[in-house]
Simulated assay, not measured.
Amino acid sequence: MQMKIEVWSDIVCPFCYIGKHHFETALQQFGEPQAVEVEWKSFQLDPDLPKGTAYADTYQYLAERKGLSIAQAREMTGGVAASGKRAGVELNFDSAIVANTWDAHRLLHLAQAANLGNALKETLFHAHFTEGKNIGDRETLIALGKTAGLEEAAIIAMLDSDQYGYEVAQDIQEARNIGIRGVPFFVLNRKYAVSGAQPPEVFLQTLEKAYAEWRKENPKIPFDLTEGPTCSPDGNCD
């Protein structure tokens, strides 16, 4: 049994990439990282961006969407890129392509079902922000899914259907229900939340507090356990 941490984020969100690395730094400092399960939840910063549409110029996109000048957009992203560098991530806004992230989120759900969620999340972030790849493009998603360890046939079958569309929509609706207005948003054991790309020490403090409470509710078995087939008093044998 593990304590669950749910993270709402979007792949084209630079602070989500930074926040992921800050959180992982805290997790490395945490005494029992194996006791934590991370679940990536879907969120779209621009759900109205049509599928198949891609902005090759991030500065133009930001200028249009936020009512900025190109110079202001460059200045804003320059500060974010500096924050990314301090966190150990490379944010290349000059080459980043802005695209609809719906299918990328569906792919992430497929990856999580195969215990590859974190690997794919990092792959998607790196592809978008560092490599300048179009994460709304079908062939790109197939290649990135394979890089993360997914089978090509499973990826194609998912993209050719509406598989995991309900789960993506459910994540987004749940975010609305609990009042999430910006990402990244981390929920620990459904009791504590951290909003934004907070410093690692903030994540660590909250992680330790949440885990202490969770451990009281879920005491450790006082021995190392190797599990195999068992029968229970209710007659179930597996």
Rank of each mutant, 00 (worst) to 15 (best):
N92L: 05
Y192E: 01
A82V: 05
V183G: 06
Q28P: 03
P47T: 11
I18D: 07
T77W: 12
A143N: 07
E152P: 05
E24F: 13
I135H: 02
D57G: 00
K121I: 07
E227L: 15
I221K: 01
S9V: 06
F185E: 05
D94Y: 08
E201H: 15
G145L: 11
P219T: 05
N118W: 03
A104Q: 12
E131G: 09
D46I: 05
I11F: 01
E139H: 14
L62Q: 09
S161G: 03
K133Q: 13
Y192G: 02
E227A: 14
K209H: 09
E167D: 04
A212R: 00
P229W: 05
V7M: 00
N189H: 14
E151Y: 02
S69L: 12
D238T: 15
G182E: 13
K51M: 12
G235M: 02
L124F: 00
P47L: 14
D160F: 06
T101W: 01
S232M: 09
T77G: 00
Y164C: 07
G19Y: 00
K216F: 03
D48E: 14
M158N: 06
N100T: 05
S9I: 00
Q34H: 14
V36N: 14
K146W: 03
E24M: 15
R138V: 10
E174N: 14
Q60I: 12
I11T: 00
N118L: 10
Y166N: 12
G179H: 06
E75D: 14
G79K: 15
A111P: 02
E151H: 08
L188E: 04
I172S: 13
L45C: 07
H126L: 11
Q112L: 01
E217Y: 00
A82S: 09
G79C: 09
P222C: 09
H105D: 04
A96R: 08
L141G: 15
V194W: 02
R215I: 08
W214V: 04
A63G: 11
I180Y: 12
I135Q: 04
E90K: 13
A82I: 07
A175R: 01
N92V: 06
D224Q: 15
L207C: 11
S95P: 02
K133S: 06
A54W: 01
K191M: 12
F203K: 05
E227I: 15
L141A: 14
Y166I: 05
P14T: 03
F30C: 07
V80W: 07
C16V: 08
G67F: 02
K4D: 12
H21D: 08
H105F: 06
D103F: 03
G52T: 01
A63D: 11
L62P: 10
F125D: 00
Q44I: 08
H128Q: 10
S69W: 09
L91K: 07
Q2A: 14
A143V: 07
I155G: 07
E227V: 15
T130R: 13
A197M: 03
N92C: 07
K41H: 09
L188T: 04
A111C: 01
F223R: 11
N134R: 03
G136Y: 03
L124S: 00
Y61E: 04
P233M: 07
G19C: 04
Q112N: 04
A114V: 11
G31F: 06
T130G: 11
E24K: 13
R215D: 09
L91S: 07
R138M: 09
Q2E: 13
E32Y: 12
R181V: 13
A87T: 01
F23M: 15
D48G: 11
Y164K: 01
A63V: 12
K216E: 05
